[in-house]
């Protein structure tokens, strides 16, 4: 469990705090999205969770260890993996295999164990065919997969991802999304990810919303997207599927309120078609 207790953080030279009085808990195995306007403190909050940043006041406690305690920082970083927005900023090796081995070497694992974990991770993220390729020659989605693989090989209890899809094309976004969805199902590793995409927020089980450094929402996406005035104030938007569904309803087409994704919307609209056909037959 990661506990954020009464956390405030003010950057040097800044007038306003980046985070104010934030309290929250991330349970083991949980999947959480962090949303909010640009500059609202999303990345700052994420960096507090593995001690990349320390709070100005308050505490962040990872499995009982305070991130401010220098003696425990390596153990905290081992448990809490971090994926940066731009994978180019964290890939360092000459082949995919070596990239995955890099973190484990720093943990001092023996070779047999490393070999096993490399094979497991390559297959888990479908990277077998890329094992000998230089990471910097891969596509954006592939690079991001390698970055996640290198962190997962260290078997973290928590994985933090900072806008992992924002620089990717549609294919890369789908690749990274299936990884996040897979990890959310697999309770061995908790996932906390920052996103700007309303459609990604809609897929999360729990969403945290920050507004000017304050935690203003902690709940499920359907409740979040139900409140239009709050969304506007927080600089968020409804997912496109919901906006299109609203328009279709206004034009007299019946669409269930539960529709949150384009797939569901397509099925809802076409299902109506089947019933009409059934009635006329």
């Amino acid at each position: 469990m990661i506990e954020v207790q009464d956390v405030c953080l003010t950057y040097q030279g800044a007038e306003a705090p980046a985070l104010s009085d934030v309290n929250l808990t991330v349970q083991s195995g949980e999947s959480v999205a962090i949303a909010g306007a640009s500059g609202s403190g999303k990345t700052t909050l994420l960096r507090l969770l593995n001690g990349l940043r320390l709070p100005t006041s308050g505490r962040v406690v990872v499995d009982g260890m305070d991130t401010a305690n220098e003696q425990q920082v390596w153990e905290i970083r081992r448990r809490v993996g971090y994926i940066f927005q731009n994978p180019d900023n964290q890939l360092v090796s000459t082949t995919v295999e070596r990239e995955i081995a890099f973190g484990m070497e720093n943990l001092g694992l023996d070779r047999t164990e490393m070999r096993e974990r490399i094979e497991d991770t390559l297959s888990r993220l479908s990277l077998e065919s890329l094992r000998d390729r230089p990471p910097h020659h891969l596509s954006g989605g592939e690079k991001q997969r390698v970055a996640v693989a290198a962190v997962l090989a260290m078997q973290p209890a928590y994985l933090l991802l900072d806008e992992p899809t924002s620089l990717l094309d549609a294919l890369g976004r789908r690749e990274v999304w299936s990884i996040i969805a897979g990890l959310a199902e697999d309770s061995s590793c908790a996932v906390v990810h920052v996103t700007q995409f309303p459609e990604e927020v809609a897929l999360a089980k729990r969403v945290l919303v920050l507004e000017a450094g304050r935690l203003v929402f902690d709940g499920c996406p359907l409740d979040l997207f139900g409140s239009a005035s709050d969304l506007r104030r927080w600089g968020l938007m409804r997912p496109p599927a919901m906006a299109i569904a609203d328009k279709l309803r206004a034009d007299g087409i019946a669409v269930p309120e539960s529709v949150a994704t384009l797939d569901e919307l397509a099925l809802a609209v076409s299902g109506d078609d089947d019933r009409e056909r059934g009635a006329s037959a």
């Binding site: 549609a170 294919l171 496109p240 087409i253 384009l262 919307l265 397509a266 609209v269 078609d273």
Partner: peptide, 25 residues
């Protein structure tokens, strides 16, 4: 592997799911 804007995605998807709905959408 390009994702068109959501409304086009929806209309294109319906072309394979329920052709009769396409003109209205």
């Amino acid at each position: 592997s390009l994702d068109p804007p959501p409304k086009y995605w929806l209309v294109n998807r319906l072309k394979s799911l329920a052709e009769s709905k396409v003109p209205e959408l």
